[in-house]
Amino acid sequence: MANPTMDAARLDELERVIRADIDGGRYFGAALKVSRHGRTVLDIAVGHADPERTHPITTDSVFSVFSITKAFVNVLVLRAVELGRFALTTRMSEIVPEFTGQPRERASIFHFLTHTTGMPGVWEPVPGLLLEELHEAVEAVIGHVHGSVEPGSRCDYAPMANHVLLAEALRRTDPRGRSIGQILREDLWDPLGMTDTNLGILPHMRDRHVVPQMRGVLPITSKSRTSPGDYGLYTAERNEAVWAGSASTTGDLQRFMEMLRRGGALEGVRILSPQTVAAARRVWTADLPNELYRTVALRNGDAVPPANLGLGFNVRGDGMFVTQLGTLTSPETFGNYGAGTGLVWVDPATDLSFVGLSAGLLTQADNIARYQRISDMVVAAAI
């Protein structure tokens, strides 16, 4: 049955473009899921999980989603604010007293969500340190990542440090004293029916897991005590790497994004209030650039874009610049991404939700260009 809300020929062209990318070796495979007005309008799996083309991508393939993990923590932090456990203006040092030292101890939950803590954006606090346990990561960040400028004065995307402490804030203020994995499972994933999402690869997910092929893109290794290899963190059954360690499917991520598109609730389960979602998708970083992407843009010869960060979300915002959220999407479009692989967004103006996951990591610049083109093609198919 034809879908009256989307142009079928445009969606066919999108799939053709993705197949051409894969056939050309740009990446190995991808799965995309798009909804409009709450109805799935595109659900495709193209290519393979590996360069040898031995494991086809399917619509229920499990991907390591890297920094999309941060979106789950962000939502639960906003929920904790709604429940009165702390405020956006609460300083992290009030919850984690050992987080001392000027100027970082003045950084609030708001600064952590907007990547404006004043701490530099480091990938790992100590080279080669095992960071699969939250308490060890907390100790490493507190001991080695110090403030360099006043909170609020600079935007440095934090690959790991911010969400280590945000997750610790959730854990320390949890009335039931649960682990961060339990909090994510019981307060977010289970209520939303996200049965294929976890910090680690559960047994029922193992056969469908697309083992990440790093292709030299990430600047660090991620080892595990329980799974072999330089990137064992992403194949272990369990981790507490709350900044990058979760795995999911396009189906589960669609449920998460549909919750956000609908103002914080899905199928009778409310995670956030509409007011909170509205505040979260507003740009809070003014005209500050994101220092990580300043470097990417300058290296690529592009204009430096504004950071356009909301409360834990990337926001399209106004202006014309290179962005994976697309140039044809509305300024209110908001979402999150995972290093070289994944992107999720909601465009409130066209009532679209988008999930894209891929195999074979791309460099930051190539990933941004890839998803800018895909995002523009998706929103242009809305009629």
Rank of each mutant, 00 (worst) to 15 (best):
L188S: 04
N308M: 05
H135D: 15
R91T: 13
V65T: 05
E267F: 11
V141H: 02
L357R: 06
D302L: 15
E267I: 12
T40F: 07
A297P: 06
V379T: 09
L233E: 08
G84R: 13
E94R: 14
T221A: 11
T100C: 08
P219N: 12
L11P: 05
S353N: 07
R104G: 03
L170Q: 01
S179F: 10
R261M: 05
I368R: 02
R172I: 14
L309Q: 01
A8N: 02
T323N: 02
L131C: 12
E94H: 14
V346W: 00
P127C: 02
H204V: 00
H144S: 14
I68L: 10
L184G: 01
H209I: 04
L343N: 07
I383S: 12
L192V: 01
E132C: 09
T327H: 02
E105N: 15
E258Y: 13
A247M: 08
D60K: 09
Q372P: 06
L357S: 08
T100Q: 14
S64A: 13
A169H: 03
A236T: 01
A280M: 04
R370G: 01
Q324A: 12
D302H: 15
E105G: 09
T350F: 01
T329V: 10
D12Y: 03
S330D: 07
L78A: 03
V34G: 00
M194G: 02
D287F: 10
A49I: 06
Q213Y: 09
V217E: 04
S93F: 13
D43G: 12
L272I: 00
R53S: 12
S246D: 08
F112N: 06
L134N: 01
A31N: 05
L362K: 07
L272G: 00
V211S: 05
T350W: 06
V346I: 11
A381V: 11
R176H: 15
P159R: 04
A247S: 14
G121R: 05
G229V: 15
E237P: 03
D23K: 13
R36S: 04
A381I: 11
V62F: 02
A365W: 00
L233D: 03
T116I: 04
D347N: 09
L361N: 00
M377Y: 07
M119R: 07
